[in-house]
Amino acid sequence: MAKRARIRYANKTDRKNPDERITHVGGVNPDGKPWKRSIEQVVKDIESAEWEFYVEENGRRVGVVWATHNGHKYIKTTADDIQPDNVLPLLAECPG
Rank of each mutant, 00 (worst) to 15 (best):
Y74R: 02
V43F: 01
P89T: 08
T13R: 07
H24A: 04
R61W: 04
I22A: 01
V64I: 12
E52H: 07
P89A: 08
P95N: 10
G96Y: 12
N17R: 15
N58K: 12
I46H: 04
K36S: 09
R37G: 05
A79Y: 12
D31E: 09
D85P: 00
V87D: 06
N17T: 15
V25T: 00
K44N: 11
P84E: 06
A10C: 04
A79T: 15
T23G: 06
N58G: 06
R8Y: 10
E56G: 04
T13L: 08
N86R: 14
F53N: 02
I46G: 05
Y54Q: 03
H72F: 14
K76M: 07
I22S: 00
K16M: 15
G59V: 06
K16C: 15
K76A: 05
A49T: 14
R15D: 15
I82G: 13
D45R: 03
T68Y: 08
D14E: 14
N86E: 14
T78M: 08
E93Y: 10
H24F: 06
C94Y: 00
K76P: 01
P89R: 08
S38E: 11
Y9H: 10
W66Q: 01
D81I: 09
P89M: 08
Y74D: 04
I82T: 15
D19V: 09
V28F: 04
K76Q: 08
L88N: 02
D80T: 05
M1W: 06
Y74L: 05
P18I: 06
I39E: 02
T68K: 14
V65Y: 00
E20D: 14
C94D: 03
G32E: 09
T68W: 09
E93I: 13
G96R: 13
D81F: 13
V64Q: 01
I39Q: 02
D80F: 05
T78D: 13
P30W: 09
A10T: 03
E47Q: 13
T13V: 07
D81H: 13
K12Q: 11
V64C: 03
I22K: 02
L88F: 03
E20P: 07
R60K: 15
P34M: 14
I46S: 03
S38T: 12
H69A: 11
E52T: 02
N11W: 11
I7S: 03
K12L: 03
V55D: 01
K36Q: 13
A10M: 01
P95S: 07
K33I: 09
E50W: 10
A49E: 15
V28P: 03
N17Y: 15
V25Y: 01
V43S: 01
K3H: 07
N58H: 08
T13W: 06
H24V: 05
G59K: 04
W66R: 01
D85A: 13
V25A: 02
V25P: 06
A92D: 13
A5I: 04
I7G: 03
W51R: 09
T23L: 09
N29C: 08
G32N: 10
E47Y: 00
M1K: 11
P30Y: 09
R21A: 10
I75Q: 05
D19C: 15
T68M: 14
L90F: 10
L90D: 12
K33G: 14
V42Q: 00
C94N: 04
D31T: 09
A5T: 02
G26T: 00
D85G: 10
A49R: 15
K3N: 10
E20N: 12
P30D: 14
G96L: 11
H24G: 01
R8K: 15
V43A: 05
